[in-house]
Each structure stands twice: as structure tokens, then as C-alpha cells.
Design a protein around this nucleic acid. Structure first.
Lengths: 248, 248
DNA sequence: TTCCGTGTTATGTCTAAGCATGTACAGGCG
DNA sequence: CGCCTGTACATGCTTAGACATAACACGGAA
């Protein structure tokens, strides 16, 4: 999606990067080999050193190259794979799949945080946060179950927001930029409650995403998102569970 | 881990980025606002425009800014979060957690690919690939179950490699750089076989990672990796399941 | 032999300048 | 009033040159 169309002129740095990548993939330069230095490549590609630098930085960010001052640039011994996922808001996920989105708040009240959550977000146990649960629907089917704690103190403008009406996810994303985020994936067996709400069988494997965000005032929110069984999160796109007799 | 130590001088571009990020997070510039153009910021920060450009590109890559020619730079309406995970080879995962690594090949033979796999990697059904299964151990406990298909044709040097002896994962990572990779996470209930091999109960929720890689000759390998129950994959680090009476 | 300084060197970063490119906007034409 | 088009402008990208900085390598001192 990020590649230019054939025929359009690629930025020079990018095309240099592509050429270097090709040489690596085709084995011309092998893992661990030192590659020519920026100055030499600049001559070879008829570019300024800064441009070559940019190209090599790109590849280093991809994990394909290992660069160290004075030591030179070499092909990474084990090309560390960095997988990047773009996490969009739920509604977009649903709508991009061509379904209609729905949202329902199940519960919302102020409550002291349990120890487990408190330690994850770095607040003293027993701090009172907003606790809410909501369901997100795709074409009327429950799709995501969200269990969220919100720290009013990190977002002053949030003091009077009514989360019964609101999609907390979207409100926060749009109104409370964060400085730091932590995100984990795991798999959990659906609890009885998960099963009831998502309309599935107890014990089914759920892909669970935990996300916590912080700004300069402290933790903003932490959320556990349980996906419908069969949902895949991928680097390229996400995949919906198969449905019988229907089309995605 | 990527922040410089306090006291060390931050690259100018990075410190400009930080300042801009601060203004956004603290609400000085709000979502959707147009921010001053590069030339103005260059004056304000006493830097060259190229430096400001680099800083803003950084933030645009993070998804915090939205930049368009002529239209200017504005704070993104919904700061798209890109989560990046660094996927290292299994042995490193285990050793970084301070455990000893072990590896055992369970099966390996040439076999025609089933339709499901074939369509995923883009080879005709029935193509004959190497099919292998292996277990990875941490401190003697089964930790990861790997089910892999390897396309000898994409990696000529692989023709005579004996996968009974070898850690396929590492061999491929080190010897077969790829051009494109696709990666998905999902959750699956442990099959009877998963359960037996991982020494767990059938039906337990497993975090499953599918990875497929391609080079210029075609698909290299596709693999299903099932993790021990309770394992978390995160943006910052990965988390091991709790163990009773022991310390990680 | 080992250890420590010091010079060399490749990358890291910045600057000033300029051309390229896409698009928002205004103004003209039907 | 709507559509088209030209132009100005903000970002995109490159260059040449310079200085900073980490780290290898070598030589001399202990």
C-alpha cells in the first residue's frame, strides 16, 4: 500500500534502499558481511552521502542492517523482525469490513482498582477509577468485549463526560493523546461472562489485547479487549472468522 | 530503551519532536489543529528546515501528525496507533528470560501441501514442500510448538540441509532473508495433539502466531507457532506465564 | 605480556540552499 | 452557478559541506 505505482519515480533514497535490499536477499551480500561505506555507495549510486545515509537508516530500522559508528554497516546476523500493526478504532475495523457498527455500554461506575490492574498501570491499589464495560457489534453480532478503567485525573476535560452515552474508546483516542502506550496480545479461555456477552461457548479461545496509555499526568486508561473467537490480527490486515453461508 | 540517558544531548530533531509531542499531549495544539509550518518552526527552534522536517516526519510516522503538501501539518484527528513488536528467534526469547533453551525435531518429511496452506502462501495445491514439526523448550519445559512448511525452491542452498539436526527457525532467519513477511496473531483452543506435546490440557487457549515469508523466488516458509498458555507478546517485552513457587 | 592513550575512520547529525511536486484556492469562463 | 485552470505555497527530497562522536587499531609504557 505504501509502494508507489510502477512508473512513478521513486525517491532516490528509497530506490537505493531497494537495491541494497535486493543485494541482501539475493545473497550478493550475506549475513554478517560488511557492506561498502556510505561514501562509496554515494559514488556508486551517484547520490549525496546524506541520501545514502537515509536509505541505510531505513534498512536499519527494518532490522536488515546493523550500523555502528566507525565499525561500519553490516548485514544483520539475524534480521530482527519488527512487526508493526496499525490498531484503528473499533468502529473503523468494523466499517472497513463493510459491516455496520454498533456499541452498547454494559456497566459504568466508579470503583477502586484491584491490585492486579493497579500494578499494571502504576497507581496505588484502591485508587478510584471509572470502570466500564462495553460491547462492540458488527452487523448486530457481538464482536469485541471491552473492559476498561479510566483515570479521570489524567484527563481533566473528562471530569464530566458521561460514559453511558459515549464510545469511550473513540472519545479517548480523539481527546486524550498519550505519551506512552503498552500493548500485549494473549490468548484466554472465555470466562462464563465473556461467553454470555459474546454469545459463544465458555472456554473458547479468545484473542485478548491489553492496552494501557499514559500521558504526563499519569496513566490514562487501561483496557482489556476480548475478540470474537477466530478473529486474527495481522500485519497486513485483520481477518474475520468464517461465517456459514455468508460473505464477508 | 531507545531514549537517551538524562544529560546526554538529544539529537536536535528528536528534541524538537519531543517538544511538539508535548504541546500536543498537553493540549496546547489540539486534534485537528494546523500547526505552524516548517519554516516558522525552524525559526522558533533555531534549526534548519530539514531538521524540523525530520522531526515532523518522525511524529507523522508515529501517527500523531497528518501532513499534506500545501495543506500543511495538522495534529491527527485520531492518532493511529502503530504497535511494533520485535520478534526475535525463539532461543533468544528463552535466553533473555534467563532460562536454558532446548529444541527437538518431532517430524520432518516431504509432503504435498494441503489446500489451506497452499492458498495462504500462493503455491498450487499439492506442491511438495518440507513439512516439519518441532518443539522448543525453556528450562526443559515445552514452550513453543512449531509446525512449519518450507519451500526448498525458494532457497537453493537449502537443498541438502538436514532439518533433523537443525533449528529451522534459526537457519532460515540467518540464511534466507526475505522481501516480504506476513504475520498474524490469533487464539486457538489446544487440539489434542497440541495438548500432548505442550504438556497441557486439551482446549486451553493458545496464542498462535502465523508467519509466512517470501523472497524473489517465491514463498520461503510458513509456520504456525503455538505458545505455552499464558504467554503474552507485548510491545515492550514479552511475559511468561506465572509459575508456582519459582521466580522468573 | 597487558593496559592505556591517541589517531583514524565510518556513521550521526546538522545546515543552507535549491528544485520538485501535490494541492488548495482564486479567478475566469461558460 | 458550476466547472475548469493557473498559480502560489507547504511539504518532499536532494545536495555539498561541515563538525560530532563512537570505536577500532596501533603503539608505547608499565
Amino acid at each position: 500500500m505504501n509502494e508507489k505505482q510502477a512508473g512513478a519515480t521513486l525517491p532516490k533514497a528509497r530506490s537505493i534502499a531497494n537495491e541494497v535490499r535486493r543485494r541482501i536477499v539475493e545473497g550478493e551480500w550475506r549475513q554478517g558481511d560488511r557492506i561498502p561505506d556510505e561514501a562509496d555507495l554515494a559514488i556508486e549510486f551517484n547520490a549525496a552521502r546524506a541520501t545514502v545515509n537515509k536509505a541505510l537508516q531505513l534498512l536499519a530500522d527494518e532490522g536488515l542492517l546493523d550500523r555502528r559508528r566507525r565499525a561500519g554497516t553490516r548485514v544483520a546476523l539475524d534480521p530482527v523482525r519488527k512487526a508493526t500493526f496499525s490498531i484503528s478504532i473499533v468502529r473503523e475495523q468494523v466499517e472497513q469490513a463493510g459491516m455496520t457498527y454498533g456499541h452498547r455500554v454494559l456497566a459504568q461506575r466508579d470503583s477502586p482498582v484491584p491490585e492486579k490492574i493497579a500494578s499494571r498501570i502504576g497507581l496505588p491499589e484502591g485508587s478510584v477509577l471509572v470502570h466500564m464495560r462495553a460491547l462492540h457489534y458488527a452487523d448486530g453480532r457481538p464482536f469485541q468485549l471491552e473492559d476498561r478503567w479510566i483515570n479521570r485525573r489524567a484527563v481533566p476535560s473528562l471530569a464530566k463526560v458521561d460514559f453511558w452515552q459515549l464510545n469511550a474508546n473513540e472519545w479517548l483516542v480523539r481527546n486524550a493523546p498519550y505519551l506512552r502506550a503498552e500493548l500485549t496480545f494473549s490468548a484466554e479461555n472465555a470466562t462464563r461472562r465473556d461467553a454470555r456477552l459474546l454469545n459463544i461457548q465458555e472456554g473458547q479461545a479468545l484473542l485478548v489485547l491489553h492496552r494501557t496509555t499514559w500521558n504526563d499526568l499519569g496513566p490514562i486508561t487501561t483496557v482489556r479487549v476480548a475478540h470474537q473467537p477466530g478473529y486474527l490480527i495481522g500485519t497486513e490486515k485483520n481477518y474475520w472468522p468464517e461465517r456459514q453461508g455468508e460473505d464477508a
